[in-house]
Write a protein that binds this DNA or RNA. Sequence first.
DNA 1: CGTCTACTTGACCACTATCAACGCTGGTGG
DNA 2: CCACCAGCGTTGATAGTGGTCAAGTAGACG
Lengths: 258, 258
Amino acid sequence: MPKDTQTLNILVPNKTGQTHCSTCSLSSLCLPIALEKADLDALDNVIKRGRPIQKGELLFKQGDPFKAVYAIRTGAIKTFTVASSGEEQITGFHLASELVGLSGYSEDTYPLSAKALETTTVCELPLEQLESLCDEMPGLRKQIMRNMGGEIRQDQQMMLQLSKKSADERMAYFLLDLGSRFERRGFSSKAFRLSMSRVDISNYLGLAVETVSRIFTRFQKNELIKTEGKEITLLNLDELKQLAGQPNEPVVCDKHPA
Amino acid sequence: MPKDTQTLNILVPNKTGQTHCSTCSLSSLCLPIALEKADLDALDNVIKRGRPIQKGELLFKQGDPFKAVYAIRTGAIKTFTVASSGEEQITGFHLASELVGLSGYSEDTYPLSAKALETTTVCELPLEQLESLCDEMPGLRKQIMRNMGGEIRQDQQMMLQLSKKSADERMAYFLLDLGSRFERRGFSSKAFRLSMSRVDISNYLGLAVETVSRIFTRFQKNELIKTEGKEITLLNLDELKQLAGQPNEPVVCDKHPA
DNA sequence: CGTCTACTTGACCACTATCAACGCTGGTGG
DNA sequence: CCACCAGCGTTGATAGTGGTCAAGTAGACG
């Protein structure tokens, strides 16, 4: 069993006959803008790929020197910050094709930790090489900046959720967001697996575990969703969407049944 | 009186004998890394500077085409997103020397609006020129990316505040954060002017106005702060800091006096 | 001086956290 | 093989923090 607190450090340069960017089914999601074939190969050469990271293992730890950005190939990652007082805040769940670690750019160390939610494989982009590639390839630089901009936008969206929305609204938003991200990867947006625990969900949404559990129960009773352990099916997308954001007409969700 | 909903559009290229980057007292904060003199001049030439923006005027509006990044020279700006349901969430207050608009990089439009809290002057960096400058000057690119990384880090800090901290803790955090940012600019960290309204503060912190008002009153009663309208003095930094984050020993704040 | 907005204060109660107990599952060791 | 335990998830009872509603005050500006 890998030590829970050990930061991953075993990725190897891409030399073996492994996956390449040019053949990766995720390349269009990971780096959506068109890169020249030559550029793609150059990028490919700096990427390190290694053995899978096991559930619970850390990809990097808050305070570690910022030395790489990671693209998720398979699996799922959670990122979280730890306040000086010890409280943890999960800042995001990251699925295949997404980049992790960009916020390291602010300082020379990562301002957050990244932990695998399940067995996960990643592509490591060492900072040094990435930097020089960016200098040579304006397209790549722009792509990275778009990614960072997207993360800012997403975090600010989350601030709105945390400060303005009720527990039900946050949960609906969370489920729909996950669904649309699965859809983007070619999976069903209505039936998927929650790789994170209830505790993780509650932490991310700023709620108590018990509240999350109760909402799942109530949503099921009202036939909005169906859950079987970590498997979930969204049964009534329309109502969920109304709950999540567009309350054209107030939705009665049987909040406090008599 | 300027139309409240009109986006600013009157900045002119730097040709008159105005301020220059090389003589700007903020340059070390705005772009802390060393730029060559020639680079600084090149940057200087693409910056547009214009008449001050009046209180309440918009620098840019959510949905506007992303065409520039702004550095604040004097004054203060608030940025906010509007959800489809109409709720506003203030995502940040920005003081002199800070960059605004970087999140535009995620799409081709700004994902938020920026409004002046008081009469404000800005330096506009048109995107097109900024892009080509970045291609030529690796130092500038890195600087911009550091700024974006910093914004991500800051937003994630805020997520923690919004989801894990009590109203008192958020307020203490907010006041200390403002103080330290004023200090960085050479002003007192303990006595300054809150250029934003109570409503703005409450929105930013995810609280009701009434709660903010009550906390100000209670903090004063306990001699943590002193307020006179928008002027505020932090009287007991130690206790505020304990409240904000490092509860080595639980602080009794006379929360609900008998 | 009147009006409008910003701010403050008070009363009330809803939402959600907290505390407690229990069932389930998977892993470990006797 | 089974007993035990730890971790996760669910459910119930209770109470506190902070929201909402309402009213009043003070400050800004014409």
